[in-house]
Write a protein that binds this DNA or RNA. Structure first.
Lengths: 211, 211
DNA sequence: TCCCATCCGTTAGAAGTTCTAACCCATCGC
DNA sequence: GCGATGGGTTAGAACTTCTAACGGATGGGA
């Protein structure tokens, strides 16, 4: 304990206040969406007045960035533990759907409409690669070569260090976009008027992705 | 011309101002997203001060609703004219992609993250059904029965008047969600870090949807 | 042609928001 | 105990949406 291995009381308090603010932010986002998130309202819910929160978050964007980071982290961990428990590709896909349905706004925060000016920080792309790797590990490379896989064979810098063959990369992309296609339209309420069950559609798409 | 078959000059002026306001709104939305749309800024761009626009739009939501309506209308017309020109399913899909890439925020306005409280008006769902019908007409019912098609056979109230068989309905949903899956992730910038071409992925998914 | 109602645009202002500045005071380390 | 650090406060600027009250122009009926 010569130096900064343990945290000071101030740092602990600071982390606690930040965490509590993020909790309130999640509640607010779940009910009113990310665009209606108010730093002022959060501060008042915590019993302190307006600008006090600016000691903890430089601005509204930094708070949202932290929410995005938490969402990414949560998804990455959820998928990683599922994979560690022996879940196959179908299990991971259903884990993803469960995670998304548990908090639609959380899913849409990372995969929904982005703010045009907003630029995601470096570490979120790292977590994104982590998620991709978890899914990629479950992708079976038994699929035949396609125009997509041959294209990815020469355009794979994003997964340069992952040993998956180009057919697995192609499989991963089709998995990702197909599941996201069903999930995002379901979460956005575009199936709400219709009386069918989106889960059947999800399972139908999932079935096309299994060996 | 006994009564209201032609428009009065006032009505024409009113429609013109509304149209100009919507033009500025589209410009604003294209650069800063729908959440950053400012009624005040639009008014000032038009040379009039703040609250004047409230003579033309009851509130911000009504203006956004009108934008959503225009977007739906534009997509429906674009697909309808493509279909009238003899476009097949592949042609319609590529028309959709072109339309989406022409103005990403316009696509995301209708298919992206919704505002939780917001309720779409009746006529937009009518246009949505119009779009579905155009695509449905191009869906070949040659696909075999699947769990999804049997489910849709008994849950098709949303397309009750359309004569398509359940296999075509299933085909339509897989088409919709697969294309949207690629497009929405591409428009949201989730492929931007990677160096591959989203069009290849789009064409790959499209190929799986053709007979 | 005149006149009046309707409608348009204005300014003022309330209630929000984000965020900065200045100040006070508690806490923490030396 | 003393001083620096940092948290919380209020004030205030610059925004936003939206309402209210007031002018003035326009357009249709007598």
């Amino acid at each position: 304990m010569t130096r900064a291995d343990s945290t000071t009381p101030r740092e602990r308090y600071r982390a606690q206040v930040r965490a509590e603010a993020l909790e309130h932010a999640w509640e607010q986002i779940a009910t009113a969406g990310s665009s209606a998130l108010s730093l002022n309202a959060i501060a008042k819910q915590m019993g302190m007045s307006g600008p006090a929160l600016y000691r903890y978050f430089a601005n509204r964007d930094e708070l949202i960035t932290e929410l995005v980071r938490e969402a990414y982290r949560s998804l990455a961990d959820t998928l990683a533990t599922a994979a560690a428990s022996g879940a196959d590709l179908a299990g991971l896909a259903r884990t993803l759907r469960t995670w998304a349905l548990a908090d639609p706004q959380r899913y849409l925060l990372v995969y929904g409409t982005p703010i045009p000016g907003y630029r995601a920080p470096e570490d979120t792309t790292a977590i994104s690669q982590e998620i991709a790797a978890t899914l990629l590990n479950a992708c079976t490379p038994a699929t035949p070569a396609t125009p997509l896989s041959t294209h990815l064979a020469t355009h794979r810098t994003w997964a340069a260090d992952h040993p998956a063959p180009p057919e697995a990369l192609a499989h991963f992309f089709t998995l990702w976009t197909r599941l996201h296609g069903v999930l995002s339209l379901e979460l956005a309420g575009h199936f709400s008027g219709m009386d069918f069950d989106p889960e059947v559609l999800f399972e139908s798409e999932l079935a096309t992705l299994l060996p």
